[in-house]
């Protein structure tokens, strides 16, 4: 099971974490990965200056838009599965 954890703290919220979460929800559903990928939220990771923070497993990524999130999802989830 892969866990995607998106920060929902104040700063990340402003940088679009809500839309990013919505994107991941949809992406997981559309690629039928509900049994393999779990989506979680977390409060402040104390790296607020770097853009909306998210973890895939233990690895930290930043996304500033659902576009960035799509790029990360394709690269880190979809391609790595194959």
């Amino acid at each position: 099971m892969t866990v995607i954890t998106v920060c929902v703290g104040s700063a990340c919220h402003l940088k679009g974490s809500h839309q990013i979460i919505e994107y991941f929800k949809k992406a997981i559903e559309e690629s039928r990965l509900e049994k393999e990928v779990e989506l979680k939220g977390t409060f402040c990771m104390e790296k607020c200056t770097d853009g909306a923070n998210l973890l895939i497993g233990e690895e930290l990524f930043h996304a500033n838009s659902p576009e960035d999130a799509r790029e990360i999802f394709e690269r880190e989830i979809l391609r790595k599965r194959k």
Binding site: C7, G9, S10, F43, C44, M45, E46
Partner: peptide, 8 residues
Amino acid sequence: ISGGSTAG
């Protein structure tokens, strides 16, 4: 409680 750091 409110706020990520406070929760921490």
